[in-house]
Design a protein around this nucleic acid. Structure first.
Lengths: 87, 87
DNA sequence: ATATTTTGTTGTAAATTTACAACATTTAGT
DNA sequence: ACTAAATGTTGTAAATTTACAACAAAATAT
């Protein structure tokens, strides 16, 4: 199966947590360069690795990984606010 | 990375839709034996394949794939009904 | 400014997933 | 019961992911 290009928010989430690739790699149990490859979207993770990452961040997988380009988080927020109505 | 054993509900969902492995494989663009391997949980899918499957079923990925054993759907329903209260 | 940490890049090997074929077994339909 | 379709099993090859090393470039801290 030719695999599609996938998109992810690993680097943003990692920076918001203020941890390095090395630290993230350690807690997940993976080589730190693997995190680099994923952040640069040079290849796609296995489902197992993707699940480990979403478990680490405590977020649903679809908020981190997508087959469609991911908007910046700030844009997501604006859209959600608009959808909910004037607050 | 030694990959964990993952669990999935592909065979139940596929049967509820009443399609064969071959048909599912075709729409997803994968060999029909690959579906067999996944249903028997002999190996884990790539994230891309997992996403394709969840897109096909129109369900969040976590409802189909999990790192922890998945309960039968009927049990999930009972638990949800209990959580919501007497209906 | 310079030292240290972090990230990017390239290459290769190992591990895992996917494809594919051939055949056995099971299930479903008639 | 018989036939056809679906599933399971085994083996091998191809593709992709992950590990790892070595070094360059960039960012951060002091």
């Amino acid at each position: 199966m030719k695999s599609r290009k996938l998109y992810n928010r690993i680097s943003v989430l990692r920076k918001e947590k203020g941890i390095s690739r090395q630290e993230l790699a350690d807690v997940i149990g993976v080589n730190f360069q693997t995190i680099g490859y994923l952040e640069r979207e040079e290849y796609n993770p296995s489902l197992d690795l993707a699940l480990k990452i979403s478990e680490y961040f405590g977020l649903p997988l679809e908020l981190i990984f997508s087959s469609k380009p991911l908007k910046p988080l700030i844009e997501e927020i604006v859209e959600l606010k608009n959808k909910i109505g004037g607050n």
